[in-house]
Write a protein that binds this DNA or RNA. Structure first.
Lengths: 149, 149
DNA sequence: ATTTTATAGTTTCAGATGTAACCATTTGCA
DNA sequence: TGCAAATGGTTACATCTGAAACTATAAAAT
């Protein structure tokens, strides 16, 4: 009497489940980049992200760094403490608002940045080399749509 | 004398840097799914991943679960400890090899699975709804290429 | 002006994570 | 056979992480 049967379970097919695939791909890529700088510069992935944002936008506050990196403000606070301690980021106080910090890469910070950034770009290039021109454009456009607010 | 100038720093443009975009997208998607089951079932993201794999492939060993989820074997061991403790996974010992465990979802595990899996699929559907048919096929094909070994 | 509310940032605590060391069992091979 | 190397899995440790509580300052409301 199969007409009364309990509906079969419907497990996710992880191999083709988009959130799962994105997670695997993202972790693989980020980790392989991080592997190149963590040992060499004693730099964590969160610290590098903060540095990359400060390289692009100077004089941000910690909150603005958190917004741009999409990291937790606590994580940013801790990453900054280490970066300032290591002399890689200069921190001062905002003129008109003593709560806000004003952050920028130091000389030493820029030196590290200028070594790590090309490595990161090389990884991106290697990854994109698996796609032809058209596919690269498609990917960009698709990510735009998936990430639209 | 600009011909002698030091080369300008070349910061990454994070907005368009692929590894960064993948990371943001992946975290946003996975987290929004997890938000729906963590509180309701006291289930962590790693635990859910283990359950999803065991739903699809029964009688795996812990090492096989680690392979399929791409999680660390320690993370798997701990997730399994909690799942077994909570009665969501049944663990026995392999007949011919006393080192290996044999894992499967329990009744209670299946009950939870059958609530969470449709939620996860709904999220994937909502995400893919931002793309037309052609784009969905392109994305699939592009991910295949980016994730090829 | 004074009080309330909001914001920037840090600290604390409790849980999660990865690496390395570890135990038990099995396999390979002398 | 017996012993070294490999494998499945857990434990210990040190680090990292997020939520909530906290401090200091600024903005808004009365």
């Amino acid at each position: 009497m199969t007409s009364n049967a309990v509906p079969a379970h419907a497990p996710l097919e992880l191999e083709s489940f988009l959130p799962y695939r994105l997670s695997i791909l993202s972790n693989t890529v980020s980790q392989s980049i991080a592997d190149e700088y963590t040992d060499r510069f004693q730099l964590s992935m969160t610290e590098w992200r903060v540095m990359a944002v400060l390289a692009r936008f100077a004089d941000l506050s910690a909150r603005e760094v958190a917004e741009r990196t999409r990291m937790d403000k606590v994580a940013v606070s801790r990453a900054l403490a280490r970066l300032v301690e290591a002399g890689r980021v200069d921190r001062s106080t905002h003129d008109g608002d003593k709560r806000r910090s004003v952050l920028k890469l130091s000389e030493a910070g820029w030196t590290i940045h200028d070594e790590v950034a090309p490595m990161a770009r090389a990884h991106e290039r290697d990854l994109l080399a698996r796609l032809d021109e058209g596919e690269q454009a498609q990917l960009k456009s698709i990510l735009d749509k998936l990430m639209a607010p």
